[in-house]
Design a protein around this nucleic acid. Structure first.
Lengths: 337, 337
DNA sequence: ATGAAAGCGCTAACAT
DNA sequence: ATGTTAGCGCTTTCAT
């Protein structure tokens, strides 16, 4: 069964195919009766417009690329959920690509997007990314680009993030105000902006409240539940004294909690724990884990809205880019009450 | 800055643009020196192939549509994660669409996919969907279609699912073997195949082990943590006697556990609990919750592979469709040990 | 209000 | 091994 095109409809109604095209697109110069006739015929013949052909001719694909490190992480899938919902309401389709945290796959994704003639790209960079050339190419093409969460700070690009510095600060401040003096911070070994900021917030909170900075209490590694457990084992075996742990993200905090329980160290009496990200499980486990909420739902919707504004503006890189920064929210739960 | 096309490259090298096209696509009839020259020039001029134009001409978009109810549910985002990874390895891009559990948005998504000339669709249907016409249109177009998890059983379409009947059966059987006699089952009120199957598994297990079926113990509603709590409140206030709860999914089970704890009903001594889906938190909470694992990672990769096979085959609806059924795995944890 | 004609950038059948 | 030509299905300018 051959597909119906506007030409078929035109022949059937004995009018020109440009009239059909106009009628279908509600062009103002087309009379109502003609429009009605065309639309009915299109319906009857099971016409499906060919978006590819229309994109080629008009130069507008009504598609944007969304590039995320990975989708099997609650935070990213929530954000993509939000982006898709908003962009879809506004008539855009989403091309999805995962970098799997690899720099070269990220590059490949951008290339695919460019080849696919997307009208813009929303991205959160991989852990490996420290150069900005791949994204610079997007800018050079004058294609709109927006970052969320994991950004490249040296690129003049609109972005939606949370104030990670503040997140680190308030988490640490909270622990200090609970009387904690030896606060361990578990961070990441890679040079990733948002993680550095959380560390900076931790350090500044200590300084601000006149607590000493102890290098023994700052641990870097690859975050995971097991790494959290490992850290506690190491601290205990090295006989390093501590009364609180602030982790980079929640899975590590979970590992910390599990290992503390195993050692019969009381939470929060002996050691308080605060995580980061507000993963589902943090409110459900025992003890429930204090954490910093990143408003992942809001972030997806916000970056999509910011992006739509950008698309309308036209000259994307003439003005200083809009940087939307969410305030992080500290959720105090049983692990640090 | 105007974009570079094969015509520009051709002009620059003083050859025809079809030679350029062939060289770029590694056509066998093109000499090595020419290929080299063309590729170098393309690189130098910053050439980006226009996938849209190529798709229009060749009829192959190298894109498939992935339609899921929603991405803010771990199960679906894991599966999409798997699908994207595999399809990407095979040179396909993913157009993403969420039905948000609504039938009409699902229809709109399918239409968008058809307009976008995707080469096929992988889908899991919305809770509202009980008619198959929207998907039947895809089949009529002879476009490959595959379902995962939530399928339309009356459609002759390849699919990847778990054996939900068996999942319901083994969960119930496990409780029976632990000596439980009054097993509550919390299900859903909508007519969704996989949920019906889990119920059937529950019923058959009771029958098989000679236990009576008590309508009071079968509850239907909209699953959620709060609904789980509600169910326990209702059972207690109605003074209905029970010694185990098997829920349709894990959030409901979590609610059940929370409410039981609030009533100081001992888990698993007084009441055992088994959920379904193996959400992250089930292994982390106290007591950890027994659940049925659906192998969501495997499901994504498997449906992608099945789909690739389908694409190669050509005549998609001539043979009886391949139905891949994963065995569910019961994970026994503290809530029912 | 409608029609005629050009062309978006590419692939592929048909030449040579 | 390379060039010529047609055309995928649509939008859009220019004409009437």
């Amino acid at each position: 069964m051959k597909k119906t095109t506007i030409l078929d409809i035109a022949r059937e109604l004995d009018i020109s195919f440009s009239t059909v095209s106009r009628a279908l697109n509600d062009h103002k110069a087309i009379s109502e009766p003609t429009k009605k006739a065309v639309k009915e015929m299109a319906e009857r013949m099971g016409y499906q417009p060919n978006k590819i052909a229309s994109s080629l001719r008009s130069g507008k694909s009504k598609t944007i690329g969304v590039l995320v490190p990975r989708l099997d992480v609650t935070f990213f899938s929530s954000v993509v959920h939000g982006i898709e919902a908003v962009m879809n309401e506004n008539g855009y389709s989403i091309l999805l690509y995962q970098s799997q945290e690899h720099f070269d796959r990220e590059k490949k994704g951008i290339e695919t997007f460019l080849n696919s003639q997307v009208e813009g790209i929303i991205a959160s960079i991989s852990l490996e990314t420290d150069k900005s050339d791949a994204f610079a190419a997007v800018i050079k093409r004058n294609m709109p680009l927006a970052f969320f969460d994991r950004i490249l700070p040296d690129l003049e690009v609109p972005s939606v993030t949370i104030d990670d510095y503040r997140g680190g600060f308030i988490a640490t401040e909270h622990l200090i105000k609970k009387g904690r003096k030896k606060i361990v911070h578990i961070n990441q070994y890679r040079n990733v902006n948002i993680f550095n900021e959380r560390l900076r917030g931790y350090l500044d909170a200590l300084k601000h409240y006149g607590l000493p900075i102890d290098e023994d209490l700052i641990i870097k590694g690859d975050f995971s539940l097991d790494f959290g457990r490992q850290c506690i084992c190491d601290l205990v075996s090295k006989k390093i004294d501590f009364d609180a742990v602030f982790t980079l993200e929640d899975f590590t905090a979970m590992g910390v909690v599990q290992q503390l329980k195993e050692y019969s160290i009381k939470i929060p009496d002996d050691v308080s724990v605060v995580g980061f990200a507000n993963e589902d499980f943090t409110s459900l486990v025992t003890p429930s884990i204090s954490t910093v909420d990143q408003n992942s739902m809001g972030m997806g919707r916000e970056v999509a809205h910011l992006f739509l504004k950008l698309l309308k503006k036209g000259d994307y890189y003439k003005h200083t880019p809009e940087k939307f920064v969410f305030e992080p929210t500290l959720l105090v739960r049983e692990s640090s009450i």
